[in-house]
C-alpha cells in the first residue's frame, strides 16, 4: 500500500490560559489514506476541534503545538514556510469549521468571500465573471436555491444550515485532497444532514477526496466512515476499522459509548451519557484518564498512563490489552460488570 495521505504522529497541543497550561491533545496518532473517510468521535471537549485546527496550524493564538508530527502528502507541515503552508490550505487540505454562524465574514457578501477564496489559489488570470459563475455553481451543488441572486447577500441573510452549506461549497472550490469537516452536519435537520452526507460521499467517490469527519454523532460516523478515531480527554483511545470497532469495541470507553446505540446503523444518535465526569484538562489524573469512570480500573490504571497498543488492525490505549503486565496486576476483562454490550 502506498504512503498515507496524512500521518499524525504523537501530536501534542496545549492552550495557554490564565488558569495554567491546558494539555488539549496528548500523543495523538492516526492516519488517513487517499480517498479514505475517517471519523473522529468523542464527548464535548475531548479535543476534536483542536485536532482539526492543529493539522493546518490554525489554532487560536493561545494554542501551541508542542510535539509530534503532521505529514501531509509526504511533507512535514511544520517544515513548510508560511507561503508554502498557505498553498496547502484550501487546496491540499480544506476545512469546514464547527461554527457555521461565525465562519463567514459579516461585512462582505458571500460572493465576494467566495471569489477571494477562489483567487487564493488562482493564477489571477480569470475574470471576475468566470469566478462568479464558478461560485454560483459551487453553491448550487450544495443545494442553495437561486444561487445567482443569493450570492449578492450578506451572511446574516442566510439560515444556519445555509451558511453551513456555503462553508462546504467554499471548502470544495479547489477540490482538496483532504477535507476536514468539523461537525459539518450538526446544525442541520435530519433531511439536510442526510443530503450533506450524501454530497460528501459523492465528492469522495468522484474526486477521491479524503475526509476527516469530526462528529459526536456515532450514527453519522457509522454511516459514512471507513475508519474511526475515538478520543477521550485529548487522547486517541481507540483507532481502527469502523465495522471492527462497532462489532467488537476494545476500549471500555468505546464500549460505553456504543452501549446507547441500538445498532451501528442507527441514525441520529448522539453520545450517551456515561456515569461520572470527564476530568478537567487542568487537573488530569496521573494514570489512565478514564480510570475514574471505568468499571475495570485496577491499581495500575490509577498509577500510570497506558500506552497505545496495536491489536489486530486496531490501536487501543488500555491496560486490558497490555500483555507485558503480570496477570495479577492486569485489569480483568469482566464485561458483565461494565456498561456495554458483551
Amino acid at each position: 500500500m502506498s504512503d498515507p495521505l496524512l500521518t499524525v504522529a504523537g501530536l501534542e497541543v496545549v492552550y495557554h490560559t490564565d488558569a495554567g497550561t491546558l494539555p488539549a491533545l496528548s500523543d495523538v496518532c492516526f492516519e488517513v489514506r487517499e480517498g479514505q473517510i475517517v471519523g473522529v468521535v468523542g464527548e464535548s471537549g475531548c479535543g476534536k476541534s483542536t485536532l482539526g485546527a492543529a493539522l493546518l496550524r490554525l489554532l487560536s493564538p493561545n494554542g501551541e503545538i508542542v510535539g509530534g508530527r503532521v505529514m501531509f502528502a509526504g511533507r512535514d507541515l511544520a517544515s513548510l514556510s508560511s507561503g508554502e503552508l498557505r498553498k496547502v490550505r484550501g487546496r491540499g487540505i480544506a476545512t469546514v469549521f464547527q461554527d457555521p454562524l461565525t465562519s463567514l465574514n459579516p461585512t462582505f457578501t458571500v460572493g465576494q468571500q467566495m471569489i477571494d477564496a477562489e483567487r487564493a489559489h488562482g493564477q489571477g488570470r480569470e475574470s471576475k465573471d468566470v469566478l462568479r459563475r464558478r461560485a454560483i455553481d459551487a453553491l448550487t451543488r450544495v443545494g442553495i436555491p437561486d444561487a445567482a441572486r443569493r450570492i449578492r447577500n450578506h451572511p446574516h441573510e442566510f439560515s444556519g444550515g445555509m451558511r453551513q452549506r456555503i462553508m462546504i461549497a467554499i471548502a470544495l472550490l479547489h477540490e482538496p485532497s483532504l477535507l476536514i469537516a468539523d461537525e459539518a452536519t450538526s446544525a442541520l435537520d435530519v433531511t439536510l444532514e442526510a443530503q450533506i452526507l450524501k454530497l460528501l460521499k459523492e465528492i469522495n467517490a468522484s474526486h477521491g477526496t479524503a475526509i476527516l469527519l469530526i462528529s459526536h454523532n456515532l450514527g453519522v460516523i457509522a454511516e459514512v466512515c471507513e475508519r474511526v478515531v475515538v478520543m477521550y480527554a485529548g487522547r486517541a483511545v481507540e483507532e481502527g476499522d469502523v465495522y471492527a470497532i462497532f462489532d467488537r469495541p476494545l476500549h471500555p470507553y468505546t464500549r460505553a459509548l456504543l452501549a446507547a446505540v441500538p445498532s451501528p446503523q442507527h441514525r441520529g444518535t448522539t453520545l450517551a451519557a456515561i456515569p461520572g465526569r470527564v476530568p478537567s484538562l487542568l487537573a488530569l489524573p496521573p494514570g489512565c484518564k478514564y480510570a475514574d469512570r471505568c468499571a475495570h480500573a485496577v491499581a495500575v490504571c490509577f498509577a500510570r498512563e497506558p500506552a497505545s497498543l496495536a491489536r489486530g488492525g486496531l490501536r487501543v490505549r488500555c491496560f486490558l490489552y497490555d500483555d507485558s503486565l503480570p496477570a495479577a496486576d492486569k485489569p480483568r476483562a469482566d464485561w458483565a460488570k461494565a456498561p456495554g454490550r458483551a
Partner: peptide, 10 residues
C-alpha cells in the same frame, strides 16, 4: 472564527 476560516482557505 471567520478570520481563521479565511486563513484556512489559503
Amino acid at each position: 472564527r471567520y478570520i481563521m476560516a479565511a486563513r484556512s482557505q489559503g
